[in-house]
Structures are given as C-alpha cells and as structure tokens.
Simulated scan of single mutants.
Amino acid sequence: MAYRFRLGDRTVKRAVHRIACEQIDGALAAIAGKPRDKAIHEVRKACKKLRALLRLVRPGFPGYSYENTAFRDIARLLAFTRDARVMLDTFDLLLAGAPEDFDRAQALFLRAHFAQALEQPGVEDAADARLEEVRGLLRLARERALGWTLEQEGWDALGPGLGKVLDQAGRARRAVARNPGAAQYHELRKRMKYHWYHTRLLEPVWPELMKPRAAELSRLADLLGLHHDICMFEQRLETCLPGSRYGHSAAALRGLAADRRKQLERDTAPAVAKLLAQETEALMDHWGRLWAVWRAGGKPAA
C-alpha cells in the first residue's frame, strides 16, 4: 500500500481512485484490528494523506471542496484525545531536557493536572463511539471515491496543484519572516507537509532525486510538528495563572518551552529556505518533464 503513483496506473484518475481507496481501507483496518489509540492515529494520518492527494489534483477536481471538508471533519472527530496526549508528551520532552536544578517534583503536580483530561469519566466510551461513527463515514467516502472525476489528465492534472501548494508555502515562509508567531508557523507547517506528501506520491518519477527530498521534508515535518505542539503547550500554560498552585511551575515550564521553540525556529529556517529555493514554475516544469520521461518508458520504483 505504498503512497505513490505507479506505472501500472493507466490514468491519473485511476491512480487517484486506487490511492484513495488504499488509504481508506487502511484506516478501516486499523479501526477493526488495532488498539484504540493506534487506530485513532492511523485514521488521522490517512485523512492527512487523502487531503494531500486531493490538493494535488485540486485545480481540476470538481469535488475538492466537499471531499476535503469531509476528511477534515473525520479527523477532527478524533482530535479530542490527541490534544490531551500532546500536552503530556510535550511536558515529558521539555522536562527531560531541563537543567539539573529544575524543580521536577513541583512540575509533576502540573503534569498530573494535565493528565486529568485523559482520565475523565466517559472518555474511552466517547472515543469508541466516535471511531464507530468514523467507520461509517469512511465507508461512504470510499463509495464516493470510486466515482471521482478529473477535468485533466497526465501532468496537467497534477502540476497546477503541486505549484499551488508551493506558492502557498512561499507566502507562508515570508509571513513567518515578517511575524514569527504561532499562527504563521502553523500555516508554514501545513504547506510544507502537503509538499512532503506530494513528493512521496511523485517519488517514482526519479527516486534518486525524490527520496532525499522526501527525507528532508519528513525531518522538517517532525521539527515543525514539535514547534506546533510546543506552541499549544505554551498557550495551555497561560491558563495556569500566577498565584495559583501551578503558577510557579507553569512559569518555569514556559521558559523551557520558549527556549526549545526558538531553537526549532533556528533549526528549520535553513531547511525551508533550501526546499523553496527553486522558483515554482521551474520546479513544476522540471518535475513535469520527469513525469513525461517516466510515463514514456521509465521503470517502476522498486
């Protein structure tokens, strides 16, 4: 179930049908056979891949708006436990990197406060109910996917969507340079992650070129994902007001979070600049030529 185009796909439309159904089938299998937390993770990951696939063919896909919203809403149904888990995982990450003189014992009282969100009565039952709802929604989406139509074929169906995401990533990078806030970094993270998925889909056109780019985009996605989690963590810490029993620990953790966030910003900037160094039109033209060579007689990726 590799997330990529194949030479055996006679048309882009058939490829889109196949890839969409593979992702939906994988999500349904996770719901049926994996532990709850793992199933939720797998479903949300599949929805991200599906939305990236849709963005690649967006300019010529009449059903884009409806289907993108449908998969976004499916993922959101399962987001409520993730946010609580992110708080704990980010807490543990920051605490592991804290200096030796950091008051860990006091901070653990705050961690217990965050953990309560995962221990509320009914959380597990709610998760099971939402997974069952998602199962039904995914089955309906699979039926629709088999009937998706595209207004273009070949590279004409893919190039404009690839370029649109790259242009959006460039604008997001410039917005971060002007105002490096959480919202601006969140937008950059989304656009670079879509480009990562697009690179993976197109990897067979020239694996020697695409695999290293995909690997760097994967690394960047991890770093920007951690940046996003830390921003969420900082926002949550703002609710622990000075003077409360958690105020001192929250203030100390905010300092750790800010230091780590700023380091991530320094680490990601060069990678983003390199990945977006080529003009969008030039990259679209280059990859389009690679697509044509591959489709004309290239060998499938192993």
Rank of each mutant, 00 (worst) to 15 (best):
86 V>R: 01
36 R>T: 11
67 E>V: 10
79 A>F: 04
208 E>R: 04
66 Y>D: 08
133 E>Y: 06
130 R>C: 01
114 F>A: 12
246 Y>C: 07
47 C>V: 05
129 A>Q: 02
271 A>H: 07
201 L>C: 02
284 M>R: 15
187 E>R: 06
297 G>V: 15
15 A>I: 01
8 G>F: 13
284 M>W: 13
243 G>L: 04
188 L>V: 07
12 V>E: 09
112 A>T: 15
170 G>Y: 06
254 R>Y: 11
72 R>A: 04
287 W>A: 05
193 K>G: 05
202 L>Y: 04
242 P>F: 14
201 L>I: 09
77 L>R: 10
16 V>K: 08
19 I>C: 06
18 R>P: 02
156 D>K: 07
164 K>Q: 00
166 L>C: 08
203 E>Q: 04
239 T>D: 11
40 I>S: 06
125 D>R: 04
19 I>M: 05
283 L>A: 14
208 E>N: 02
19 I>E: 07
265 E>M: 07
118 L>F: 00
60 G>F: 02
157 A>Y: 08
223 L>R: 00
181 G>C: 10
248 H>W: 04
197 Y>E: 08
119 E>T: 14
87 M>E: 07
302 A>Y: 09
48 K>N: 14
266 R>E: 13
42 E>Q: 15
240 C>Y: 13
264 L>R: 09
11 T>V: 09
151 E>M: 13
242 P>G: 15
19 I>V: 15
278 Q>C: 14
145 A>F: 01
91 F>I: 00
206 W>P: 00
89 D>V: 02
6 R>L: 15
241 L>W: 08
23 Q>K: 03
9 D>K: 01
166 L>A: 14
124 E>I: 12
221 A>T: 01
220 L>H: 09
69 T>M: 05
38 K>F: 12
236 R>T: 03
77 L>D: 13
178 R>C: 03
122 G>L: 03
188 L>K: 02
272 V>E: 06
164 K>H: 00
229 D>R: 00
112 A>W: 14
104 R>W: 01
301 A>V: 12
156 D>E: 13
116 Q>M: 09
181 G>D: 10
176 V>G: 05
5 F>L: 07
61 F>P: 01
193 K>Y: 03
74 I>A: 09
46 A>Y: 13
114 F>E: 12
284 M>D: 15
46 A>I: 12
25 D>R: 09
34 K>A: 14
34 K>I: 04
29 A>N: 04
218 S>W: 11
73 D>M: 11
8 G>I: 14
70 A>H: 11
41 H>R: 11
232 M>P: 00
101 D>Q: 11
160 P>K: 15
164 K>I: 00
245 R>M: 06
128 D>A: 13
58 R>C: 05
25 D>A: 14
108 L>M: 10
149 T>E: 15
131 L>K: 02
293 V>Q: 09
221 A>I: 00
247 G>R: 06
228 H>A: 02
6 R>K: 08
2 A>H: 04
137 L>G: 11
